[in-house]
């Protein structure tokens, strides 16, 4: 029981990761695939934040007059700020590609795109 409830944030990470991954594999719609990718990347962000968080820990700012303050590790959060930027950029490039695919093929369904390519 401790493994399930005590580590619930990691179970959420695994759940989100699999939902995202499954969406990417199973969906033929290019936008839905990108949504899956986004969920997949978000799960990793939660993984990082969970790693750095300490129960009752506060932001790493020195508080005068108090000793033995518990701080949360700020580095995973900082790393994830970078990863968020990367994720946004990836999504933007991906959606831009989908727009151009729609212009070129008239569809964003994977199987219809393959059909058109096979005819050529």
């Amino acid at each position: 029981m401790k493994e399930v409830l005590g580590l619930y944030n990691y179970w959420i990470v695994i759940g989100l990761m699999m939902i995202g991954f499954y969406t990417m594999i199973s969906r033929g719609n290019l936008v839905k695939k990108l949504v899956g990718l986004s969920i997949f990347q978000t799960s990793v962000m939660i993984l990082y934040i969970s790693m750095g968080k300490i129960l009752g820990g506060t932001a790493p700012i020195i508080i005068e007059g108090r000793e033995n303050v518990v701080y949360t590790n700020p580095i995973p959060s900082v790393l994830i700020l970078t990863a968020i930027v990367v994720g946004v950029a990836t999504l933007a490039v991906g959606l831009a590609l989908v727009v151009r695919i729609k212009e070129a093929y008239g569809t964003i369904e994977e199987d219809e795109i393959h059909e058109q390519d096979d005819v050529m």
Binding site: L30, L37, G94, L97, I101, D117
Partner: peptide
């Protein structure tokens, strides 16, 4: 070629994973 677009999209998905 318009297939460059789908190639780039596929690369984006697999590369990001």
């Amino acid at each position: 070629d318009r297939r460059a677009l789908t190639a780039a999209y596929q690369y984006l998905i697999m590369g990001s994973v």
